[in-house]
């Protein structure tokens, strides 16, 4: 008995040792910055490094700024539509790729391209594609198909740019979702489908009563990750178009342009962080039932 206990203790100690490198890197490089930002958010920071304590003033001035609320709304539009679109499209692609067809190996490789190509290298092509004067998209829409009678700036205009950003996000991240879903799809027991067929279930019924429940937790995790990633997304949007002011972009402009208010920038970051944590806890409880 005595010996057994020490073995377990030994084991526990080894366990801690094994996880320690990962844990310490994460804690050190995440906790300090978070703490630093919370600290800064109570100060009026100037370029020369002198800061004065101003209590909650940064927060009140951020929260009373209508453009902040507008960017919260933009963020939610972006995150919700891009997460939903990515998951849906990823699911469709996973179902298609789960069927056998000629040249499937090639198609499978091709559809990974958006995910693997560096953002910076593809944004130029997107900008070119949607360029109002020289782009192919407008050429087709106006000159060839005649769907619109006038060219317009899809990627630049304040009302359309967010949709381009959403489609870009779907384009960029659906392969990840598809890969995750496909690997789960392949592990579903074939007997389940056969049994359902014997019971006379059609494809729709099979999808809803077998496939979807089997995918539930994978999808739950993917949606969660995608939601978090897109909520904090900066590069993809910033490099593609400067007209979609989601929170991270709004913060960047606040902290790094104009009169460069680092204090307010920090306050914004803290608010964004708090908002996200609240949402996630809710989601984890309700959907993933942790």
């Amino acid at each position: 008995m005595q010996k057994h206990l020490t073995l377990e203790q030994k084991d526990a100690r080894l366990g801690v040792k094994l996880v320690l490198p990962a844990l310490s890197i994460i804690l050190l490089l995440i906790l300090y910055p978070v703490g630093y930002n919370i600290y800064l958010s109570f100060f009026d920071v100037t370029m020369t490094g002198q800061s004065t304590y101003i209590a909650l003033e940064n927060y009140t001035s951020v929260l009373s700024d209508p453009t902040f609320w507008k960017s919260v709304a933009t963020t939610f539009t972006y995150v919700i539509f891009s997460t939903f679109g990515t998951t849906l499209f990823g699911l469709i692609v996973a179902m298609v790729m789960n069927k056998k067809f000629p040249l499937r190996w090639l198609v499978r490789s091709i559809i990974l391209l958006p995910y693997v190509a560096p953002v910076i290298s593809v944004v130029f092509a997107w900008q070119f594609f949607f360029d109002p004067v020289n782009g192919i998209f407008m050429h087709f829409m106006v000159d060839v198909l005649g769907i619109y009678d006038q060219r317009f700036n899809l990627i630049g205009s304040p009302s359309y740019a967010i949709w381009v950003a959403i489609i870009f996000s779907i384009w960029k991240s659906f392969p990840f979702t598809y890969l995750m879903l496909l690997s789960r799809l392949q592990t579903i027991d074939k007997n389940l489908y056969e049994a359902a067929e014997i019971d006379g279930c059609g494809p729709v019924r099979k999808f809803f009563s077998i496939t979807l429940p089997e995918l539930y937790f994978v999808m739950g995790s993917i949606v969660l990750l995608r939601f978090i990633w897109n909520f904090n997304k900066f590069e993809d949007i910033y490099l593609l178009t400067d007209n979609v002011k989601v929170l991270s972009i709004y913060t960047y402009f606040k902290a790094f342009t104009g009169n460069m208010d680092l204090g307010q920038g920090s306050a914004l970051v803290v608010i964004q962080f708090g908002l996200l944590i609240g949402l996630i806890l809710l989601y984890v409880k309700k959907v993933l039932k942790w």
Partner: peptide, 12 residues
């Protein structure tokens, strides 16, 4: 950890 956006981490 992913809830901490890149911008937050940059300066610190």
């Amino acid at each position: 950890v992913y809830m901490v956006g890149g911008i937050l981490l940059l300066i610190p």
